[in-house]
Design a protein around this nucleic acid. Structure first.
Lengths: 211, 211
DNA sequence: GCAATGTCTAACAAGTTTGTTAAACAAAAT
DNA sequence: ATTTTGTTTAACAAACTTGTTAGACATTGC
């Protein structure tokens, strides 16, 4: 058998499935639609994946895993001082979202509709998150003790950053409907990024240490 | 004909539709499911609303209109000073979301899946928002000129508040899966509210004016 | 009372959607 | 070569979904 052709068929289906699932979500996606886009008969994706649910889980788990890396990057890279590193985290996370703008809505949406998918997420990235979280909290506490930053829990800080960043992209469809120009849309996003950094910076940096 | 019974049938359908649509979204909701929950044959909701789309729009427009009031409240009530009023806005908006925790995800989700629904939103609350926005920007500018608060666009301020508040509830399903105790969940929400107020306060208040 | 109108049900219909299966076709293994 | 295994298609089927319709039943106005 021709391995390349086989792989490419399965991959074609996965790629098509990813596109359609990401754009429309689980319920609105029809297996025939995926097959059409992949250029195969819909029996093919039952041959490879048996059920619609199976294809979906493959995609979903891939996407969930994508969330892990930017978060792990948060605690490594101890070269920079914490405040500047947090700035970099916002930058990295924001750019990651820019490269995957439909990811947040997709994940949130599916977690809301299928609460058991939250378990999938916890299984996949739970321990890693837990570790990173503890390390970050310890670091924060040190900086607080030194009087450099304001007290804050690592959870609140992470939620602040993620909330602000993610929302910028979740609300993108609204922005797009108001301004159609691509450059202008990008300018708005850049402005948001700047504002988010400013907001987080003011939240953590002690006022006495600011210019 | 018995008006009360008629109203109650139609209302039963609308109530059931609201529950199911809010919980599952447009695509995942089946008309038979709505009929079942309302305790009527599914022909009934075609009799009253003709199509699934029609029932949905009724629900959707109602929900969109609910968003308007808390925002309008932002500019009225000139008794308080701006900074304290912003604090109240966060409080009001947060409590509104607490009373309607599934609303944000529902609206965002449907706007993402059906971009034309954004038009519906703009038609319903567009002008009101525009007016409130201008008034707020003028007020901010005054306070900035007096050296009381840091420069910020009204859009950024609103987006910061809405992003942080909404995210707290959009991510609620995750919190619920981690902590099952209701009181504990509430404590987490209260902590988030406090943190959001703190974050926004530090963002806008000039450092010189702070204790 | 009875005609007109509104409400409701059961049955049906057309289309879609997920999934199966038999059989054709291709490749690999012996 | 031929058996075995893997891939692909076309046709089918069962279930579900949205929507219709004919007629029963109730209510109202006259």
């Amino acid at each position: 058998m021709d391995k390349k052709k086989t792989q490419s068929k399965k991959e074609l289906i996965l790629k098509a499935a990813e596109e359609v699932f990401m754009a429309n979500g689980y319920e609105a996606t029809k297996t025939t639609q995926i097959a059409e886009r992949a250029g195969v008969t819909h029996a093919m994706l039952h041959y490879y994946f048996q059920t619609k649910e199976n294809i979906f889980r493959k995609i979903y788990e891939d996407k969930i895993n994508m969330l892990k890396d930017p978060i792990v990057a948060l605690v490594e890279n101890k070269e920079m001082e914490l405040p500047q590193r947090i700035d970099t985290i916002i930058e990295t996370h924001f750019e990651f979202l820019k490269a995957n703008p439909t990811l947040p809505h997709f994940v949130i949406s599916e977690m809301n509709n299928n609460p058991h998918l939250i378990e999938t997420m916890k299984e996949n990235i739970g321990e890693v998150m837990g570790e990173s979280y503890k390390k970050l909290q310890n670091e924060i506490d040190e900086y607080v003790a030194q009087g450099i930053i304001n007290p804050i829990t690592a959870l609140d800080l992470l939620l602040d950053i993620v909330s602000l960043n993610v929302s910028a992209f979740v609300m993108l469809p609204i922005i797009k409907s108001v301004v159609s120009d691509k450059d202008e849309q990008n300018a708005i996003l850049e402005q948001r990024k700047k504002e988010i950094k400013e907001t987080i910076n003011r939240r953590i940096i002690k006022t006495e240490n600011k210019a």
